[in-house]
Design a protein around this nucleic acid. Structure first.
Lengths: 397, 397
DNA sequence: GTTGGCACCCTGGGCTCACGAGTGCCAGAC
DNA sequence: GTCTGGCACTCGTGAGCCCAGGGTGCCAAC
């Protein structure tokens, strides 16, 4: 029922329905070839460690898989432990509950599900969710009208900041989870304009504009008695030697010319160099857009104290940026489930993220309870990334 | 005890201890002349409406006041309803609990306190808090070392954005509440630089730099086949006619010259004018810095759903800016307690805010449960404003 | 391998009960 | 008139108990 809603049988599916089993028009489909790339072993450094060996078709026969899927779907949909009877109903299995119970016992032995207490239904473990996700294919979950909405919202963005802010907002609204959008690092972007604006006798504002539209400003304390004429000359020097360089190289370039500059400009140039020492090359100041934090509070999965820590985490933009960037190693959506997250506070949360590319890659994703609807979330993330991509191309063309 | 901690008997106090009552070395002091200016009737538009009539010394005799103060302090400190015995202890009253009970009954009749249920202790009502705050004088609650810390943190800020971000962070850390810092509107700031940077053949970036250090950028879609030469001329026109104007006047100025400009520049100038149509004069895009949201989750006053709505509110920066700005009509700290807030979702929350001035005023404050330690929060807000003020002066001198 | 049946387990809700904190009020003392 | 001790009363809370319900594991039979 609810499952059906979430996985509308759109698109061809009855395809390769594997071994001959009494399997009716189940909404849960097999893994097609565009299956979601999973977060697993890009190299050996996946946090999860022990989980599923990559060749999926190992310990679970078809029926066990169906049972697992049913349990995950049901649990995600209703939040309660699901029992054998329910599984029979929802998976439309043509066996008895007793049989399913046996399967469930097996699944529990294998670590895919667990019971909160003897004689409650079963609940998926992180491993169970992982398996479910691995077998899932991302739905095109953003329905027509919604998709148009996304297109419209993102399409009318005026610059990149705006675009990313909108993306964050759209993402959190569609998924009702916390959205995270990390702006591209931009250190390879090229400098389009360098300006030095005198604000007061003792201070000036350094403006750096990159060809991506990124604007950086730095306050600069000028040496006493710097004259406007000197500033003008510095402007000239900067314009000549620094414009067109990569953001990542700006600091070195300025430092270099400072050393060779005439004595009376040296101090000013040094000050300028200092101001560009950090925040351009390194990715410490990634802009991060966070949206929909309120959704965390609404979710019962998180108890008070945990919630509080999650919110704190969301305020540490640097950590956040690293977190999401780390999770997105290639161009496929990635899922980090519960314990797979290194970060302590994300134990009972999951991250679904994907990279997008501009000159250099940014990434985006959503954060929510482990018990989330991975199918539709994956679809949404993917769709939003595509749309963002397009809008970005529009902006920079 | 706890009260003592929160109101250390620093500074002269034993002063005008009003009428002759057996009042020992209470930590709760009388209202001195630098008493906190309250949010009340700057004009007739205070949301609260019916609460305390201004001449404070009306319905409450001294002992009732003491009792009320004790109840508020105790309740704030421990979060539980406080009973007559407790009041006797904590207020060091030399009367019996029975007497206090009579006083409490009176206070309840007057609407200052209430009992959650028959035969629990009493809890302050909004009106009770209001009265308490009205009689309170702001403590210099930021202790020495902390104050230095604030000074250090704010002092090393490089520009205004940075400074305000730090202020927000400091404020939330000191109070353990949600901090809100609203940047000055800046529409009266004067334009120091106008730049038009061509990014791609079809688009450019308009940069506006104000003498406050504020930088605004706007993406501009250029008419097809705009040449660099044209851009250069537009730059000239802008530099000549717009520089030095107030931000609030920029749009009109550009629109005006667009009409008079040579035909081949008109479209470009129109585009530029469009881009400056909003966000400069109006205060819709106040920058708002929010910090310490996690503290909301930690507080038991808010139940789940309410919490969620509060978090949502915090994401609506525009509303937030209006909220805080509205609350700060003059240069004294203001307190909005519970129902005094127009905004529905703030029913059980309080706002403590104060204005600070630059060229034009910004404001800042904290948001937390109604049951907060107004004494120290007021002190902290005041101290932070002072410090911010100083740092701002440093920055712009 | 599957099934129905059955004993068993555990949570959650509802109920009762005793306790304790706190009150309101009264009669008497100052 | 004001304060006080005392007392009866009121509720909310927590413990203890029971029962129903949903779920399980296992077994014997198909």
């Amino acid at each position: 029922m609810a499952v059906t809603e979430r996985h509308p049988p759109r698109g061809a599916s009855a395809a390769s329905t594997a071994p001959g089993r009494p399997r009716p028009d189940l909404d849960i489909r097999d893994v097609p070839d565009d299956a979601v790339k999973v977060s697993v072993p890009v190299s050996g450094d996946t946090p999860a460690g022990e989980s599923t060996p990559l060749p999926l078709d190992d310990d679970l026969d078809d029926r066990k898989r169906l049972v697992l899927r049913a349990i995950v779907s049901e649990h995600v949909a209703h939040g309660e432990p699901v029992g054998s009877k329910r599984v029979v109903q929802v998976a439309r299995l043509e066996v008895s509950a007793a049989t399913v119970r046996n399967e469930m016992a097996a699944l529990e032995r294998l670590g895919y599900i667990t019971q909160p207490h003897t004689s409650a239904g079963r609940v998926p473990t992180d491993k169970g969710y992982r398996r479910f996700v691995d077998e899932l294919r991302a739905d095109a979950a953003v329905a027509g009208p919604q998709r148009e909405l996304v297109q419209e919202l993102l399409g009318s963005a005026t610059d990149m900041e705006d675009l990313l802010a909108r993306t964050s907002s759209v993402l959190s609204q569609l998924t009702r989870l916390v959205s995270l959008v990390i702006a591209p690092a931009g250190e390879t972007a090229r400098l389009k304009l360098v300006e030095l604006v005198g604000l007061t006798p003792g201070s000036a504002l350094l403006l750096l504009v990159a060809d991506t539209g990124r604007v950086e400003k730095r306050s600069i304390e000028l040496p006493p008695q710097t004259t406007e004429a000197q500033l003008e000359r510095v402007r000239g020097v900067l314009g000549e030697h620094v414009r067109g360089r990569r953001l990542g190289d700006v600091h070195a370039a300025i430092a270099a010319i400072a050393d060779e500059a005439p004595a009376d400009l040296r101090d000013v140039l040094r000050a300028v160099a200092d101001a560009t020492a950090s925040g351009l090359a390194d990715d410490t100041i990634h802009h991060v857009f966070v949206g929909g934090q309120a959704s965390l509070a609404g979710d019962a999965s998180f108890e008070r104290e945990h919630l509080s820590r999650l919110l704190e985490l969301l305020e540490e933009r640097a950590t956040l940026a690293r977190l999401v960037a780390d999770a997105t190693a290639d161009d496929e959506p990635t899922v980090r489930i519960g314990e797979e997250n290194e970060v302590e506070d994300l134990r009972s949360a999951s991250l679904v993220a994907q990279r997008y590319r501009l000159v250099t890659a940014g990434s985006l994703g959503v954060l929510g309870p482990t018990r989330m609807d991975y199918g539709s979330v994956l679809g949404t993330v993917r769709a939003v990334v595509e749309q963002l991509q397009e809008s970005l191309d529009d902006l920079s063309s």
